[in-house]
Simulated assay, not measured.
Amino acid sequence: MKKMILILFVVLYCFSCEDVIEVDVPTDRPRLMVDALMKIDTTVNSSLYTARVKVGATNDFFSEIEPVQLEEITLTNLALGETIVLNEVQTGSGVYSQDTSIDFMTSGTLELQIEHSGQMYRATTTFVPTVPIESLEQGEGTLFSGDETEILVSFTDRANREDFYLFDFDFNEYLVTEDEFYPGQTFSFSYFYEEGLESGSTLEISILGVDEPFYNYMNQLIVQSGGDQGPFQTPAATVIGNVVNTSANLSESERRDNFALGYFAVCQTYSESITIE
């Protein structure tokens, strides 16, 4: 009985000492969020490709990204003079897609146009090639805790061109690199999964070709988030992508202020799998 009374006293004392602390967090107007990262694997024996865009809206710092419905979303190949309309795959999903050809996606400048809540948004890009991953191996190295899992990656840069790369290490973990210090050479590096991985886990690791603006954009996101920031996650601070407000009913300053988040990019992609031992 004395132990029960003592426990009750401690609990009441702890609750009586609690102070309510109110923290002001950043707020912002609702913003359109656009995930238009299109990965094209040219090793697949098919002439078709499904263009896919995910859209949502976010405002408060801790808010979830909610799917939104658009008035219209189109993708135009300016060189070919062809336009496709993307349709929502399921009502309320915020995911829009349409089948097209590999040639449509890989030749000339592509223009994405979005109409949402009476405002127009536009982004342009071109297909960026890359090189295959030559080898994936599990290493034995660690960093600080000793529980990390090391993956060794090798690839050979293509000579006579400036290349930027984005690596997708699964689990929304990304890394960017450029060939400034290894042009035309084989480059090997280690990537560490901080929390370690269970034996038997299979990873799919991809290399994407990106241009310099998208390289800089992803680098900012990765630095802010410590390495686990995907292009459709709410960034810790505002990182402006290439989706521009072009609404004719707004002034230039209003268009600059009412920007969208996210990015439109079309990247050649090679993927390899590795099973953790």
Rank of each mutant, 00 (worst) to 15 (best):
Y263D: 13
L250H: 03
N242G: 05
A260P: 06
S251A: 11
S93N: 04
I133S: 06
A265H: 06
L112D: 03
L166A: 01
S251E: 12
S188A: 09
V128G: 02
T74C: 07
S16Q: 09
E150P: 03
G92M: 01
S188I: 07
E111Y: 00
F181L: 15
N258W: 08
R256E: 15
G146R: 06
E18I: 13
D19W: 02
P213W: 06
A236L: 11
T142V: 15
T50L: 07
G81M: 02
D163P: 00
F144K: 10
E194C: 00
D99T: 05
S107F: 07
F144N: 14
Q233K: 14
S47W: 10
D19V: 06
E64A: 12
S273D: 14
A79E: 14
F164H: 14
T58D: 04
F181P: 00
E82I: 14
S154C: 11
T27I: 09
Y270H: 15
D147L: 11
E150W: 02
L110W: 01
Q113N: 13
Q268F: 00
Q90D: 12
D163E: 15
R31N: 07
M4I: 15
S46C: 09
L32P: 03
P129L: 01
N249G: 08
S47Y: 09
L136T: 13
E194K: 13
T238I: 10
T202W: 11
E148R: 05
L261A: 00
L78D: 13
Q98C: 03
L203H: 11
Q224D: 12
E198P: 04
T58A: 13
Q229N: 11
I40S: 02
P231Q: 08
S201Q: 11
F144W: 14
L86N: 01
V53N: 04
P231T: 13
V23W: 08
F259H: 15
P213L: 05
L152A: 10
L250C: 06
S225W: 04
S247E: 10
E18M: 07
F127A: 06
S97V: 06
T269F: 02
Y193V: 03
F61V: 05
E180Q: 07
L48C: 05
V53M: 09
D35N: 15
L75P: 00
V20E: 10
V243Q: 03
N245Q: 12
V44E: 14
Y174D: 00
G184K: 08
F144D: 08
F155Q: 03
Q220K: 06
K39H: 04
P129R: 14
